[in-house]
Write a protein that binds this DNA or RNA. Structure first.
Lengths: 222, 222
DNA sequence: CTGGGAGTGGGACAAATGTCCCGTTTTATT
DNA sequence: AATAAAACGGGACATTTGTCCCACTCCCAG
């Protein structure tokens, strides 16, 4: 099991399993499909929900909105990712907002049914354990990195992730993912351009110079 | 299930369950006790381990050491908390260092046995799910808070947590928990003293003025 | 008792980041 | 095509945080 860093998380194994359940007349009878337009809320922070959602199609962002008007994006969830599971397990109000960045289709499973499925399908239970473990793992790594390195590093890393996944987000969202202002994001980006990045060797970024150059260019052309 | 913010995490339900397993001749035969002196490593970041640890007694800190020499502390784990479980679930190298802040005693369970226990005891499995969910929950809240508010707020919150738990950590550790330098920690503390804190109403800190004053005093006396 | 090492407290300055603001560009809607 | 709304880019300045450094205390091993 690799722990590759992903900005956009996906999980094909999980999706497959849920697809199968959905097809199954018995097990799938409480599972439903639901669609959201780009920009719509799947979940509102602080609300009470009674289903979990598994993304079948599309991309969502998962973020906390603080009282001071700022947002912090934890992750971008794509195909096969589950959300609302914390609330199913711990019975609390929703931790974060989930909104659709693209048109999104999800499977919904009621909480009690979800918990029952975990009990009856050890394989499903194990998939969930892995999802949770992976999230903790990633969150820890990211948080540490963002707290202890200058923004410049986090930004480079972010660009490389974005490039390697060929997905592109709005600056506002990238800034919120880094926990900084858009202004800082722009400024740092500009500095990277000027410094010509290439000499930045010491970074443990798993992306070729070419790809990185391409990423920076994305912000350069007039 | 409450989501109270804890700096020092504990879990009596989990501990009880493991204690019972330990007593049980059958189930407990692979569970062992192990002790560590204050300052010792239970787990080294990047190493490979083959057991999970459940803390029976004592306090540990769980942190990532970055290449640039800085540490980021995720959590302080106390009685009943498990660690090494991510590695059991995902089979990877250790995410973080775990060191003993006080003398520590743990139960150790080999990975394969641990995974088997999860399968044979649904109750145990559920306890673990709750632990993981709670960690994600807490981590998200904390990260967001620390990224989006000035250090002053995070520090106040931290002091209140510390006071409410009656546990006291070294400044170095508190700074590492906040992801800032000791210098910044001191400076902010000083500013709080000067500002007399009390007028700081807008904070959602669940601690009385008296307690907070007491906390600040702790750093004041000469 | 004593010298070294760790922890503490803070001054001075440098670097990073945020806030406010405004002009431009892009995108969506009518 | 015309216009409004949102996103972009960056200047100027304020604030926050880090780095470097030094002096002081405390504690313990020799």
């Amino acid at each position: 099991m690799s722990h590759s860093q992903d900005m956009l998380r996906t999980n094909t194994a999980f999706l497959q399993f849920v697809e199968q359940l959905f097809e199954d007349k018995q097990a799938g009878n409480a599972i439903q499909l639901k669609s959201f337009a780009a920009g719509a809320y799947l979940i509102r922070q602080g609300s009470i929900i009674s289903q979990v959602y598994i993304i079948r199609e599309g991309i969502t962002k998962c973020y906390i909105a603080e009282d001071n008007g700022k947002d912090y994006i934890f992750e971008f969830l794509g195909t096969g990712e589950i959300t609302g599971e914390l609330e199913a397990i711990n019975k609390g109000a929703c931790l974060s907002n989930i909104t659709a960045l693209t048109p999104v289709t999800v499977f919904t499973i009621p909480h009690d049914r979800f918990m029952a499925l975990l009990r009856s399908y050890p394989e499903f239970n194990e998939l969930l354990l892995k999802v949770l473990a992976a999230r903790i793992y990633q969150t820890c790594i990211r948080t540490s990195y963002q707290q202890l390195y200058p923004v410049e590093y986090a930004l480079l890393r972010l660009l490389s992730l974005e490039a390697s996944q060929q997905t592109f987000f709005a600056k506002k969202d990238m800034a919120a993912y880094l926990g900084i202002s858009v202004r800082s994001f722009n400024r740092t980006l500009k500095e990277l351009r000027e410094k010509n990045i290439l000499d930045k060797e010491g970074l443990n970024i798993d992306l070729s110079k070419e790809q990185l150059e391409q990423m920076i260019k994305r912000f350069e052309d007039a």
